[in-house]
Simulated scan of single mutants.
Amino acid sequence: MSLSVSSASAVDLRVEPVDEVLGRVERSLQVRLDGGSVVRKRRSVGARTDRDTWVRIERRLLGRIGGQGWNGTEQAAVLKGVAQPVWYAGLSWREAERPVMWRADETGLLPGEPVKPGGVLVADPHVPDAWWEGLNASLDALAAQHTARVATPDTVPVTQGHVTEVIRSTFPEASDTAVERWVPAHADVNWANVTGPQFCLFDWEDWGMAPRGLDSASLWAQSLGVPEVASRVRAERRADLESRDGMVMMLFACSKIAGPYAHPEDPRLEPARREAARLMDVLQTR
């Protein structure tokens, strides 16, 4: 079968044929993938196996991998105190004629379903108090550890220059975007990457060092369409989000929502703009 996903340009795996890729993974990992469980996303495909594990497969251009590689899920297996699926095995290969890499990771099954599998959060998910305790314990434990990895949300390394560029591209009046403290972060904490009612954080391919508060600010920003949930995130992650770096990260997250590709009907849009104005005022005095 000739796959159109062999193109070196960006593709959407939700619509491209991936049968050949799935077959290669089955042969290499010696598993059978359950076709009825396949979940297709823009740059990844996942499925349950016949040994009650999960396999996630991602396609990435070589230029989006960099010197640290892209075995984030494997490297996250050494983290202590973080609720995440157990990692079992990994596989990667390069396409013969294109600058494209594929990677498959086999992990344990999630303890529940994603809180919000896709789209924007528009209603309170009503996760229990124990869920918030799990979130806090995991993010605090993660930030206390050490890594040489650099976080790459959306496959872009987080640097001071990138933070400043993203914020000022949306809010050019932002005067001081300097970050003081960098800690390990998941770098893609959102309602689609956490399970409920039992907390578990998955999709670790982009974790690494990032400004303090990135993960807390990301979940807060993704909750802005539901004010009571955004307020709960701020209360639970107060230590991060009331720090100066945390506020810079909140502004960074707002910039992504209110940037040039903002959707006028996004329920997070106006709250993000209001919060950005407040944050810029506060940061001027810090």
Results as ranks from 00 to 15, higher is better:
Ala141Ile: 11
Pro157Ile: 14
Ala123Cys: 06
Asn136Tyr: 10
Ala178Asn: 13
Thr164Leu: 06
Ala137Cys: 10
Asp140Pro: 02
Asn136Asp: 09
Thr177His: 06
Glu165Met: 15
Gln160Val: 08
Asp215Glu: 12
Glu133Cys: 15
Thr170Asn: 05
Trp220Cys: 04
Leu219Phe: 13
Trp207Thr: 00
Val189Tyr: 12
Glu133Arg: 12
Pro114Ser: 02
Leu139His: 02
Ala123Ser: 10
Phe199Lys: 03
Ser138Pro: 04
Val156Trp: 07
Cys200Ala: 13
His186Val: 09
Ser138Lys: 00
Ala151Phe: 11
Asp129Leu: 12
Gly196Glu: 08
Ala143Pro: 04
Pro111Lys: 01
Gly134Trp: 00
Pro211Glu: 04
Gly134Cys: 01
Val120Ala: 08
Ala221Trp: 08
Val122Gln: 02
Ser169Gln: 09
Ala151Gln: 04
Ala185Lys: 04
Thr195Leu: 07
Gly161Gln: 02
Gln145Trp: 04
Pro157Trp: 04
Pro153Val: 06
Asp215Met: 14
Val179Lys: 00
Asp176Val: 14
Asn193Glu: 11
His126Ile: 01
Leu214Gln: 05
Asp176Cys: 14
Arg212Gly: 10
Val120Ile: 10
Pro184Ile: 13
Asp129Lys: 09
Glu165Ala: 15
Glu205Ile: 13
Asp140Ile: 12
Val179Ser: 01
Met209Pro: 09
Ser175Trp: 12
Asp188Thr: 13
Val150Gly: 07
Asn136Trp: 09
His162Gly: 10
Pro117Lys: 01
Thr152Leu: 07
Pro114Cys: 05
Pro111Tyr: 00
Asp176Trp: 15
Thr155Met: 15
Ala178Met: 11
Pro111Asn: 03
Gly161Asp: 04
Pro111Cys: 01
Glu133Asn: 14
Asn136Cys: 04
Thr159Glu: 03
Trp220Ser: 00
Trp204Pro: 14
Leu109Gln: 07
Phe199Met: 06
Ala210Arg: 00
Leu109Asp: 10
Val115Glu: 00
Gly161Thr: 09
Thr195Asp: 07
Thr159Tyr: 02
Ala130Lys: 02
Ser138Glu: 05
Gly118Lys: 09
Ala137Trp: 12
Pro153Thr: 08
Trp207Met: 00
Ser216Leu: 08
Pro111Ala: 04
Glu133His: 09
Ser175Val: 15
Ser175Pro: 13
Thr177Trp: 05
Asp154Ile: 12
Val122Met: 02
Ile167Cys: 06
Val166Pro: 07
Asp176Thr: 14
Ala141Tyr: 10
Ala137His: 09
Asp124Glu: 08
Leu142Pro: 02
Gly112Val: 05
Met209Thr: 12
Thr170Met: 04
Arg212His: 08
Phe171Trp: 09
Thr107Asp: 01
Glu173Tyr: 15
Val120Glu: 01
Val156Ala: 05
Ser169His: 10
Glu205Arg: 11
Trp182Gln: 10
Asp215Arg: 13
Ala141Val: 05
Thr159Leu: 06
Pro197Leu: 05
Phe171Thr: 03
Glu133Trp: 07
Gly108Met: 01
Ala123Pro: 05
Pro114Asp: 05
